[in-house]
Computed example of a mutant assay.
Amino acid sequence: MKKYKTIVFDLDGTLLNSLEDLCDSTNAALNKMGYPLRSIEEIRSFVGNGVWKLIERAVPNGTTKEETERCFTFFEAHYEKNKENKTRPYEGIIELLQELKKRGYRTAVISNKYHEAVGTLTGHYFSGLFNAYLGETEGIPKKPAPDGVRRILELLHCQPFSAIMVGDSDVDILTAKNADLRSVGVTWGYRTRELLKQVGADYIIDEPKELLNLLDEGL
């Protein structure tokens, strides 16, 4: 009998490499505002806490809240039309999800990206491979608060002791801790192995297929 029944995945940096599209839309918004553009490495360091925080970090220091909101509006409009230009699943992710489904695991996505975008991207790239998804939703605090994970587990009728969380960032590992889940950090995303170790990931993997090995070993 499987020790774990549900696998909860982060989206950006874990399932999808969306960094270039996020960078392009951020810079389109910054350009519209007349602000300096950001490098892709800067954008990499800004993501993980939702798109509002991404824009808040990308605008120049001292930018007013009103101007930040204008920039965010430009970002949202651009990203809505361009979020699938360069975004792709990481190598091995589709095969991993197919195998998890074949083995009878329930899978879910939780992201700090706004809920509608999570639904669009999940449906486009992973049709039929997830049992539930949740993005930024009014009334549910974003990761690393545990509320979103708890909502997902409720939807899937799953207890924390029979679920694990997989993500690429400190935000994901802290979310897992706050929700009393075991955590698996992945090194192919937007953060470093050192950071994942520092924040206390229970396991760290370098390739998607290694998750199957961990599950086979009972973590």
Rank of each mutant, 00 (worst) to 15 (best):
Q98L: 10
L155C: 03
E41N: 15
L155A: 11
N49V: 03
I140S: 07
A108T: 01
R182S: 12
K143A: 14
E67K: 12
H157N: 11
P144S: 09
L211I: 10
V59L: 10
R38C: 15
A77M: 01
F75A: 11
L211P: 05
I93H: 04
I55Y: 00
K3W: 04
T64C: 05
A145Q: 12
D202Q: 05
R193Y: 11
A132D: 07
G34H: 10
G135F: 04
S25I: 01
N131C: 05
E210I: 04
Y125H: 01
R88P: 02
A176G: 15
D170V: 07
H124S: 13
R70G: 03
N61C: 12
R150S: 12
T187K: 09
E194Q: 14
T6I: 06
V109L: 03
E56S: 11
I94P: 04
F74K: 07
K142C: 11
H78L: 01
F161A: 07
G148F: 07
Y90R: 05
L54W: 07
N178G: 10
I43V: 14
E116A: 10
H124Q: 01
E136I: 00
A108F: 00
K32T: 14
R88S: 11
Y35A: 15
D202A: 05
S111I: 04
E217M: 15
L19C: 02
E91Q: 09
T63M: 13
D170G: 04
T122G: 10
L97M: 09
N178Y: 02
K142H: 04
V166E: 00
I110R: 03
Y105P: 02
G104D: 15
I43H: 07
R38M: 14
E41K: 05
E66F: 00
A28Q: 03
M33P: 08
A201K: 02
R70N: 14
R191T: 15
G185E: 10
K113V: 14
P144E: 01
E210R: 12
F72H: 12
E84V: 13
K32P: 01
I55K: 02
L181S: 03
L214Q: 00
T68H: 02
F46C: 06
T68C: 15
F46A: 10
I93M: 06
G135M: 00
R193V: 08
L212S: 09
E84Q: 09
S111W: 08
S162N: 12
V51M: 00
F9V: 11
D12C: 13
L174D: 01
G34T: 03
S111L: 06
A28H: 11
T6G: 06
A28K: 11
K2C: 06
